Measured scan of single mutants.
Amino acid sequence: SIVTKIISIVQERQNMDDGAPVKTRDIADAAGLSIYQVRLYLEQLHDVGVLEKVNAGKGVPGLWRLL
């Protein structure tokens, strides 16, 4: 499923980069989806406690990390 793919992308990127959070844009590119589509999935995963959003604010790139 797309959700499983997104989780594995975040996991893979974090492992490659010493646990650093992953940008929404990088996840979207790797999943082959638009940034808006991916954001909806990321928000859902956040709501159920799978991911945390590391930063927030208007015009700030979203950074995500697995919990």
Score class of each variant (00 low, 15 high):
D47S: 14
D47F: 11
D26V: 08
E12A: 10
L40M: 12
V38C: 14
I7G: 00
D18E: 11
L33N: 03
Q14C: 06
V48I: 15
E12V: 08
T24C: 04
L63A: 13
R65C: 05
Q11W: 15
K53M: 06
A30I: 06
E43I: 06
E12C: 11
L42S: 00
L40S: 08
L42T: 05
L40D: 06
Q37Y: 07
K58C: 09
A31S: 09
I7M: 07
L51S: 02
G32L: 04
K5G: 04
Q14V: 05
P21Q: 03
I6S: 00
G32Q: 07
E12R: 09
V48M: 15
L45M: 06
A31Q: 02
I2A: 04
I2D: 04
V54N: 01
G62F: 14
I6Q: 00
G62T: 15
I2L: 09
T24H: 01
A56K: 07
V22P: 02
K58I: 11
L66H: 04
R13M: 12
I35F: 09
L63R: 11
A56V: 12
A30R: 07
V3P: 03
L33H: 02
V38K: 00
A31P: 01
G19E: 04
D26Q: 05
V60E: 15
I7R: 03
R25I: 10
E52W: 03
Q37W: 09
V60Q: 15
Q37C: 10
V54F: 04
R25W: 07
G57W: 05
E12H: 12
I35L: 11
L45W: 01
L33E: 03
M16W: 07
E52L: 05
I35Q: 05
K58Y: 07
R25G: 10
E12D: 09
S1T: 10
Q37S: 08
N15Q: 12
K23G: 10
K53G: 03
R25T: 11
L67E: 05
I27G: 00
R65Y: 08
V54P: 01
R25Q: 15
D18Y: 13
A56P: 11
D17V: 12
N55Y: 12
A28R: 02
Q14L: 05
V38R: 00
I35H: 06
S8F: 13
E52R: 04
G32E: 05
P21C: 07
S8Q: 13
A20L: 09
N55K: 09
V48A: 15
I2V: 08
Y41I: 14
G19W: 05
D17G: 14
T24D: 13
S8V: 06
N55F: 11
S8D: 07
G49I: 04
L66T: 07
R13Q: 07
G49V: 02
A56R: 05
A20G: 09
Y36S: 13
R39N: 13
Y36N: 11
E12N: 09
D29E: 14
E43Y: 08
V3R: 11
Q11P: 00
A31F: 03
D26H: 06
G19K: 05
Q14D: 03
L63G: 15
Q11C: 09
Y36A: 14
V10L: 15
P61R: 11
L42H: 00
A31H: 00
R65I: 09
E43P: 01
V10K: 01
G32Y: 04
L51M: 12
D47I: 13
V38N: 00
S8H: 10
P61Y: 11
G62D: 14
G49T: 02
L45Q: 00
D26T: 09
P61F: 11
L45Y: 01
I27P: 01
S1I: 10
E52D: 04
A20K: 13
T4N: 13
V10E: 00
I9S: 03
L63K: 07
G49S: 03
I35V: 12
L33R: 02
K5T: 09
Q44C: 14
L67M: 11
L67F: 09
E52F: 04
E43H: 08
H46Q: 12
R39G: 11
E12M: 12
P21H: 04
R65M: 07
P21L: 06
L45P: 01
G59D: 09
L45D: 01
K58Q: 13
R25L: 08
K23N: 10
K58M: 08
L40P: 11
N55V: 08
L67H: 12
I7S: 01
T4A: 14
T24R: 01
Y41K: 02
L33I: 10
N15S: 10
I6V: 04
V3K: 12
S1E: 12
I27A: 00
T4W: 13
L63T: 08
P61M: 12
L42E: 00
Y36V: 13
E43V: 05
V3T: 08
I2F: 07
A20N: 11
L42K: 00
V54L: 06
T4H: 13
S8P: 00
L42W: 03
I7C: 05
D17F: 15
L33S: 02
V3Q: 09
E52C: 06
D18K: 12
G49N: 04
I7T: 03
Q11G: 08
L51K: 03
D18W: 10
E43W: 08
H46G: 06
T4C: 14
D29H: 10
W64T: 00
Y41N: 00
V10R: 03
E52A: 06
L40G: 09
R13G: 03
I9H: 03
E12S: 09
I27N: 01
K53C: 06
A56N: 12
I6R: 00
A31M: 14
K53I: 05
I27H: 01
A56W: 07
V3I: 14
L51D: 00
L42Y: 00
I9W: 04
R25N: 09
V54C: 06
R65L: 08
D18P: 11
V48L: 15
